[in-house]
Every structure is written in structure tokens, then in C-alpha cells.
Amino acid sequence: MRQVRSIRLLRGRPAPPSPAVPGDVLAEAEELRARLGSREVLHGVSVPVRAGEVLALVGPNGAGKSTLLGALAADLPPVAGVVRIHGRPATDWSAPELALRRAVLPQSATLSFPFTVEEVVRMGRAPHATGPAEDDLAVAEAMAAAEVTDFAPRPFSALSGGERARVALARVLAQRAPLVLLDEPTAALDLRHQELVLRLCRERARAGDAVVVVLHDLALAAAYAHRVAILRAGRVAADGPPGVVFTEELLSDVYEQAVEVFPHPRTGAAVVAPRRPS
């Protein structure tokens, strides 16, 4: 009887989406307006998110980066405009269908119960109607990629802030959704693990996923993002390759801080630094 019930539950779950073709728009905001409380934060923002691409959202504090990410995740209902995920309005998808199509990493990860690291990562497999072997493989690969395998049995609550951030990232990777949305994933990390996270973003894009990442570090955005959307006061000030949109004039204006932009001597990627007295 238990086996029959399990089969029925599996049949009742939604099927995962078909693999995307590079360039497919997996999410988009169109003329999006959004509020936080009584304050309108986004004012007519339009941004596409494409398979095979890392899109970095950058801009000063309060520009609307996290709000836009929350709207693209269908976690924040818009006041006006529309968010589409896999070509359909986000509101047309059920919660189980959304969980198969997008994975979200919030700014902070907190848990009230004493879950182990492995149990937290395994939560990413909840949307899937797969067997234990496939789930185990996905969890093991995600923990290895985020370099958290060694403390798999430790309580999540006993970890440092940076370790928690990497475990939360591993949960997102284990979910294996084609749209990956990361809100400041490098904020609590040391230099090595900042680079690790952005390399993983690139790997997911090479595998065909669409990755959106909120970043404050413009050097990381320039080095790893295919596209950058620069937000200012709830609007998109520029959208394009970092080598094109990262100009001294625009960035100095957006951040209200004089900056210098110059090519990296080895890679040619744009390097952004505040202009300081000599």
C-alpha cells in the first residue's frame, strides 16, 4: 500500500523543464515596478535573463538590485509590469513548478532547527521526483563544488558565516534548476571562495543555465559576468558587456565616487578602482 501511494505522489509531481538552448530567455522583467512597504523601489525596469549567460546586477546601496532579484524569483509580486519565467508569467506557475525552474540564494541563510550540513544541501532535492541514487549524487557533487564536503555531518548552526554561505550555495546547486538567482553570494567569503563562487557561476552558464548574481565587487563582475545591468535609483542605467558599460564617466556618476577603469594587464578585463589622491 505504501509503495502504491509513493507511485501516485511521484506521478502527481510536475515534470522538470526541457533543456534550454543557449540564448533562450529563461526569465525577464518587462516594465517592472515593485514596492517595499510604501516605497516604490523599481520604476519600469526591463531586463532579460538568457541561458548560457552570467548576468551581474550591480549598483549602489538602495538601487534595487535585491528587489529585482526577488521579483525575477517570483518571490516579490510587482505593482505593475510583468515577470516571465520560461516564457510564462511567473504567477502562472505553481510553487512546485517554480522550484524545478529556478533556485534562489538569499542574502542570509538562517535555520531554527539543528540540521546538519548534508541535510541542508539535501533540501535542494525536495522538488524532484528522483530516486535516492540520483539525489545522493546531486548532493555529493554540490557539496564538493562548494567545498563543504568535509563538514557534512556538522550542525549548520555551528558554522561560520562564510561556511554557511557556501552550504546555502551547495543547496542551490543540488536543486539543479536552469535559472539560478544569487543575492550577494560573495559578501561573507574570503578571496579564495569569492573566486570559487564566480567560477561556479561560469560553469553553470557553460552547462546551459542562466545565472543572475547581485554583486558589489565591480572587479568580480567585470571578470566573470557576460552581461552587467547597472541599477541606479530603481532604474537600469546601462545593460551590456562589462567591457562596454563599465566606463569611468558612468560609474563615477552612478556611485557618486570618482573611479578609474583600466584593462587588466593579462586578461584585458576591466579593472575598476576608486580614484584616490596620489
Rank of each mutant, 00 (worst) to 15 (best):
V21G: 13
R266V: 04
R199Y: 07
A71D: 12
A80Y: 09
S108W: 10
V54T: 02
P77K: 14
S38L: 08
V214K: 02
A221T: 00
F113T: 00
A152F: 02
R35P: 12
V82H: 11
G23H: 05
T110E: 12
A144W: 09
V167K: 03
V236E: 11
R227T: 07
G208E: 11
I230M: 08
L42A: 05
S278W: 12
F246R: 04
V54S: 07
F246Y: 10
E53C: 10
F156N: 12
R232V: 12
R166V: 00
Q194V: 05
V117P: 13
V271Q: 12
E256T: 03
V236L: 13
V54G: 12
A51F: 00
K65S: 06
L181M: 08
A145R: 10
M123L: 13
A152V: 04
T110C: 04
V47E: 11
A109W: 08
A20M: 01
L111G: 09
P241C: 06
R84I: 07
A205I: 01
Q3Y: 10
A109N: 13
V236G: 12
V25D: 12
T149C: 15
A34D: 11
F246P: 11
A225Y: 09
V180K: 08
L36T: 13
E30P: 14
P178Q: 06
W93Q: 12
V120T: 00
P78V: 08
L36I: 07
I230P: 02
P89F: 02
H86L: 04
P14N: 13
V254R: 01
L10E: 09
A177Q: 07
A188G: 02
A73R: 07
A269C: 09
E260Q: 10
R102P: 13
D239F: 01
N61E: 15
L179G: 05
S6N: 14
V214R: 08
A258K: 10
P106A: 13
H264L: 01
V54E: 04
E40Q: 07
M143K: 10
R101K: 09
R199D: 07
S112A: 15
L198V: 01
E184I: 00
V54Q: 10
H43M: 15
E31S: 07
